[in-house]
Design a protein around this nucleic acid. Structure first.
Lengths: 215, 215
DNA sequence: CGAATGTTTGATAGCACTCAAGAAGAGTGG
DNA sequence: CCACTCTTCTTGAGTGCTATCAAACATTCG
């Protein structure tokens, strides 16, 4: 219980009240009113920010095991939107429960802190991509990211990872236009860095893809 | 003690071992070996990420009251660099102390969680800037950000905020080239959005600046 | 005064955006 | 099974924002 390298689990938080919800693609993952907290059980979603004029910045991909709404709950702000990309199954966590456990202290507070730390790290790398990488590098990085998230969620099958993302989503994640994203993806595909078919992506060589991403 | 809107303070964490360090501009804020945790007491710094090929992405400005190193401590990674921009005064916090208090539970864990949540929110907005805004909007947003941080740190004097940032830093924060940053800043200055002199910035109308930033 | 750092400006090239429109699938209803 | 619609993907042409290169200028500092 004193080990900083303990793998993250949330089972102790959701074990008690396993209220489940299913969400269809394109729908918001969090209900409208009040603060809410959910854990992804199955499916893939995304979190994005909207600027006043409608521009959208995708800032995170949501895979099984991810917790959504914690930041909004803690900082009392509702700036980000959570949306399902594939059909999803979510466990709803009662904020009151969470609060109780946190105040009680112990492992759960530590676990939440580590979850937040991982979130900060992911955002940090995401920022590096949007800010510093050009179109090719950014897309290579995005595919890398998708591969790694799928790997740690155990979603790799027949040497492919789920890839349910429209090119518009990829564009909004990297701050590129749709057209340029399309052309750049075609070029990378022709270079044999990856191949997308049937909402799944195949990567012949992760090493080569990583190099292309200037990871 | 049960109020989610309690203002953030760290005094209970550093009150016990007020080891202070001073750092000169351009120097790393965190010592080399092992995990470290410091609180900014005075001065301004930044946190940035380095890509393999040397490109740099500035991802946060560090003002008095900010905590540095928590993410690295929790996630066991040392990806980001902390660097002083002005002379700084830092309080060094013993990670063991922090750990003790967190495990003991109670207010400090909750406070750390809120700090992390604020960090996530800031990164999220930063990402929106680097990803979606063009040069003019990005720079306007950056100046807004500087103004707001100075405000909440009580650093506004004679209607000006500290602006110790070189144009290279602004460029690396927004993912722009130095030359283009310079030309764009000149244009915005000529439009009367802000005026920089003597390492301080004057903003005639925050409202107008916000509008230019498409906040 | 040199040396170093930061700011400024001009010229040129290129990556990425916008506009426009066609092709390809997926889902719907007749 | 076939129109029909809708979304997504794709491609071409033209523009423009931003990067790169080069060099002058200003400031600070030892």
């Amino acid at each position: 219980m004193d080990d900083l390298t303990t793998p993250l689990t949330l089972d102790d938080l959701v074990g008690r009240s396993p209220t489940q919800r299913t969400v269809t693609p394109g729908r918001a993952m969090l209900p409208e009113g009040g603060p809410a907290l959910v854990r992804v059980e199955a499916g893939i979603g995304m979190r994005y920010l909207l600027l006043e004029d409608g521009r959208r910045q995708v800032e995170a991909l949501l895979y099984p095991g991810d917790l959504c709404g914690l930041t909004e709950l803690l900082a009392q702000s509702r700036s980000a939107c959570h949306e399902a990309i594939t059909p999803m199954v979510l466990s709803v966590i009662d904020p009151a429960d969470l609060r109780l456990q946190t105040l009680r202290g112990g492992a759960s507070a530590e676990m939440l802190l580590r979850l937040m730390a991982v979130e900060v790290l992911r955002l940090s790398h995401w920022l590096g991509s949007a800010g510093q990488r050009n179109a090719s590098e950014g897309i290579a990085w995005f595919v890398c990211q998708v591969w790694e998230r799928a790997e740690s969620s155990g979603l790799i099958e027949r040497d492919t990872a789920p890839f349910p993302f429209s090119q518009q989503v990829v564009a909004d994640a990297l701050g590129l236009s749709l057209v340029h994203t399309n052309k750049t993806m075609r070029r990378l595909r022709e270079q044999g860095l990856f191949r997308i078919a049937g909402a799944r992506v195949h990567v012949p060589s992760i090493t080569r893809l990583r190099r292309a991403a200037v990871l």
